[in-house]
């Protein structure tokens, strides 16, 4: 069962990283969205510094939505999903493997790109480590919650847009605590509020790790049988 799990995760990562897989697309989108902000609000550096944590998190949320709809849809369309569901892995674990692969090819590169974009938005360098830590703690939740949305809209035309609408409200806590963790440091009392926000982010990720795949598997069963 472990072999099947690893094989599936590795296959999904390889496919997303290859030609037409759209692996780099999320980072590119993130870059574009963040770079457009100063063009909209003006190049005033204190203003940008103020907006930076929020804009980075909003950009990251939108970018991680972008590749969500392919998580199950691609396999359902070409028939591989039938075969996957007849394997030794329960659907819940199939969803875990696919969410993990989604995080590796989408969430992780976005976290790596965030500090570079922080420079563009004049985020002070001393807040970068905190930003990266908060994103590392929070991005797994985006993939695991997103899996439910992807599973709910599987087999629906224009499902990607619908999945985004369904999932975004569930991303709000991640956004709030993610920005909170970075903002708290600016206030100078990072010991308390920053740590609290960070722990909450981790808690959301852990909870979504359990609930997301259960929900996704239930949605897949309801949709496909």
């Amino acid at each position: 069962m472990r072999r099947a799990f690893l094989a599936l995760a590795a296959r999904d990562i390889r496919l997303a990283a290859g030609i037409g897989g759209g692996g780099g697309m999320a980072v590119f989108f993130f870059l574009t969205v963040v770079a457009i902000v100063p063009l909209g609000v003006g190049p005033d550096r204190p203003v940008l510094e103020l907006l930076a944590p929020g804009m980075l998190w909003v950009g990251l949320l939108l970018a991680s939505l972008l590749t969500l709809d392919r998580m199950f849809q691609a396999d359902v369309e070409d028939g591989s999903f039938d075969l996957l569901s007849m394997g030794p892995l329960p659907l819940e674990l199939v969803a875990v493997a696919k969410s993990l692969a989604h995080w590796v090819v989408t969430g992780l590169p976005l976290v790596v790109a965030a500090p570079v974009l922080g420079i563009l938005l004049n985020l002070p360098p001393e807040r970068m480590p905190l930003l990266v830590m908060a994103m590392l703690a929070g991005t797994p939740a985006l993939s695991f919650i997103g899996a439910v949305g992807a599973a709910l809209t599987v087999g629906i035309r224009r499902g990607g847009l619908l999945a985004s609408l369904l999932v975004l409200p569930f991303y709000i806590p991640v956004l709030i605590f993610g920005v909170g963790a970075v903002e708290a440091a600016a206030g100078g009392f990072e010991g308390q509020a920053g740590m609290q926000a960070m722990l909450l982010l981790g808690a959301i990720s852990l909870a979504s790790f359990v609930i997301g795949p259960l929900g996704a598997a239930a949605a897949l069963r309801a949709n496909l049988r």
């Binding site: 870059l31 574009t32 770079a35 100063p38 063009l39 190049p43 550096r45 940008l48 420079i119 563009l120 004049n122």
Partner: peptide
Amino acid sequence: GTWWEWDARMTSVLILLF
């Protein structure tokens, strides 16, 4: 004193990269 400034030339080069 800053790594990045949104001045006209840098912004247009960034857009060129996009």
